[in-house]
Simulated scan of single mutants.
Amino acid sequence: MKHLQELSEREYFASVRQRPGMFVGKTSFAVLAAFLTGYDQHAVRHGSPGLAGWREWLVTRRGQDCNHAWAGQVLHIALPNGWDNMWDLPPADERHTIDVMFQLLDAFLAEREVA
């Protein structure tokens, strides 16, 4: 088993995806989005790229822009018919959105690894 420092970003986020409650307590899209935002801010503050370019990548993936940050872009992709409150998604939407978020994040990081 690798130590945390030895994990690539993709491996790290795969472990978060497997056991989100271990990282954030209550497993919800909004809480995981806050966690990822914190990860990004910490990375940037310490000279790493963090999630730089992810919002733009999501906009390109979606094929449409709006004024939402990256979390809103994920919601647009996962729930194209809309949502009322990202802090109170129905359980099925919550699971689906979390799944889509991690799929998209992995695809983004995979592309970035090759670039």
Rank of each mutant, 00 (worst) to 15 (best):
E113F: 07
L32M: 12
F35T: 02
A110R: 14
P91K: 00
P91R: 00
F108L: 09
G21M: 03
G72Q: 04
S15G: 13
L75H: 06
D40E: 13
V44F: 03
L58P: 02
G47K: 13
D84P: 00
W70C: 05
A43N: 10
L51H: 11
G25N: 12
S48D: 09
M101K: 09
F29A: 04
R17D: 15
G21V: 05
R17W: 14
L109N: 06
F23D: 05
E94I: 01
V74P: 01
D106E: 12
E113W: 07
N81C: 08
M86P: 10
Y39A: 10
A30V: 14
V31T: 15
T97A: 09
R17P: 06
M101W: 04
L79G: 08
F102G: 05
L58T: 03
Q73F: 01
W87L: 08
F13L: 08
N85S: 10
L104C: 06
A34L: 05
R95N: 07
G72I: 07
I98Y: 01
A92N: 10
A33K: 00
W57D: 08
T97S: 11
F23K: 00
Y39P: 04
W57P: 01
A69P: 01
Y12G: 11
H46R: 12
F108Y: 14
L105E: 10
H96T: 12
T37C: 06
R62Q: 09
T60H: 13
D106G: 04
T60S: 13
G53R: 08
E111K: 04
A14L: 06
H46V: 04
M86G: 05
R112C: 02
T60L: 11
L79F: 04
G53E: 02
A52C: 09
V24L: 01
L104A: 08
H42R: 12
P80M: 07
S15N: 15
Q41M: 13
A30L: 03
W54M: 15
G50F: 09
D93Q: 13
N81R: 14
A71M: 06
H42W: 14
L109R: 12
D99K: 14
A69W: 06
Q64K: 15
E56R: 06
F13H: 14
M22C: 06
L109S: 10
D40K: 03
P20Q: 07
L104Y: 03
W57G: 02
V24H: 08
W54L: 13
Y39L: 04
G47H: 13
L51I: 01
G38S: 07
G25I: 00
G63H: 05
F29P: 00
D65R: 14
F29E: 00
L105N: 07
D93H: 13
A110M: 08
H76D: 13
D65E: 10
E111M: 09
G63C: 02
R55G: 03
Y12L: 15
L109W: 11
V100A: 12
F23R: 01
F23Y: 15
H68D: 11
